[in-house]
């Protein structure tokens, strides 16, 4: 019996990669609910190969990295997903327990099915809080409450139009006035999520942001030639320089995907769908297992690539091909 009362699943420890968690989630979730978690644009990752260095001692393999003055176990973050009770009866509480087991930061959505206080009470994991840029004053008060509950950073989501709008109007731009109204006086580092243009990375610094998430909110359509977050990451990272922490999400399913993002200038990767697959099928154990697998794959590929520490991962590691 699985958490949703469906057919039996193998123990979560027997699943050996993230795609298997997707299959498990498909098995336990109603079709319509699973559809909200399906897909992801894999094409850009298939156009990138590694140039590895050989014979680099990997016994001290270390995934840890620093962000906003805090040490992270690995350069992965659980991305914000609203209303997680759709995937598991305990929703965000289970995700938070899994985050603690995997020593991973969790971003709590302002549209969570549980209060930020209830989630914070459930976990040792560091929490961030996410709001939408068009929520105005409501977002400000929600941030105030969340900071009171102990969240370490705030993430303001911008530009979440439908995929069809994006195709019609090109890369979306950020409404900085709206962002500033919300970010003002937050008291914790503020990150803008949804940046896809290098100019907005420059503006983010000017407006006092500490970080950005290069993201198309998981809307990437497979087969598009360019414009997925990982495609635009190098230019954005160059525009951001050292002053801004550049994070990314969008289609990450393998440790090698994460390694590519780190090489192209990201400080960490946000994971949403894979985490929800783990949550839906196995609750907190699934969340932790998905992160364990990704950390295992990342560690293996970092050793094999001759970059056994995050600081050693350089741009020369990744070759981007035309097709």
């Amino acid at each position: 019996m699985n958490s949703q009362g469906g057919p039996p699943l193998p123990p979560s420890g027997e699943l050996i990669n993230v795609p298997e968690f997707e299959a498990a989630a498909r098995a336990v979730l109603p079709t319509g609910v699973f559809a909200t978690l399906a897909g992801g644009n894999r094409a850009p990752f298939e156009r990138m190969t590694f140039r590895q260095k050989l014979m680099v001692d990997g016994t001290g393999i270390d995934l840890s990295t620093e962000l906003f003055g805090e040490r992270m176990f690995a350069p992965t973050i659980i991305g914000p997903v609203s209303a997680q009770n759709a995937y598991h009866a305990q929703g965000e509480l289970e995700t938070a327990r899994g985050a603690a087991a995997a020593k991973t930061i969790m971003v709590v959505s302002s549209r969570s099915s549980r209060s930020v206080e209830a989630i914070a009470a459930e976990t040792d994991a560091a929490l961030w809080f996410q709001v939408y840029s068009d929520e105005g004053l409501a977002a400000r008060s929600a941030i105030h409450r969340a900071v009171g509950a102990g969240v370490k950073a705030v993430c303001i989501t911008v530009n979440d139009p439908s995929a069809s709008d994006r195709r019609a109007f090109g890369p979306p731009r950020v409404d900085w006035d709206a962002v500033n109204r919300i970010a003002d006086g937050a008291g914790v580092p503020v990150i803008v999520k949804g940046v896809l243009a290098p100019e907005d990375a420059e503006r983010a610094t000017r407006h006092g942001m500490q970080g950005i998430v290069v993201s198309d909110h998981g809307a990437g359509a497979p087969g598009r030639v360019a414009g997925a977050p990982i495609d635009v990451l190098p230019d954005i990272a160059a525009a951001a320089g050292d002053r801004l922490a550049v994070l990314i999400d969008g289609g990450f399913r393998r440790g090698t995907d994460i390694l590519k993002a780190l090489a192209l200038g990201a400080r960490a990767v946000l994971l949403a769908r894979p985490i929800m697959w783990g949550l839906a099928a196995y609750g907190a154990a699934g969340v932790a297992a998905v992160l364990f697998l990704l950390h295992n794959e990342l560690a293996r590929s970092m050793v094999a690539a001759g970059r056994p520490a995050v600081a050693l991962i350089d741009r020369a590691l990744v070759r981007i091909h035309t097709r």
């Binding site: 680099v56 001692d57 990997g58 016994t59 176990f73």
Partner: peptide, 24 residues
């Protein structure tokens, strides 16, 4: 199950076998 012995056994908390990590 993929290898999940204790971090002390492997020398790393990521579950990767340490047999050939030492190459230099």
């Amino acid at each position: 199950t993929i290898e999940r012995p204790s971090a002390e056994d492997l020398g790393n908390p990521y579950g990767i076998s340490s047999g050939r990590l030492w190459y230099e």
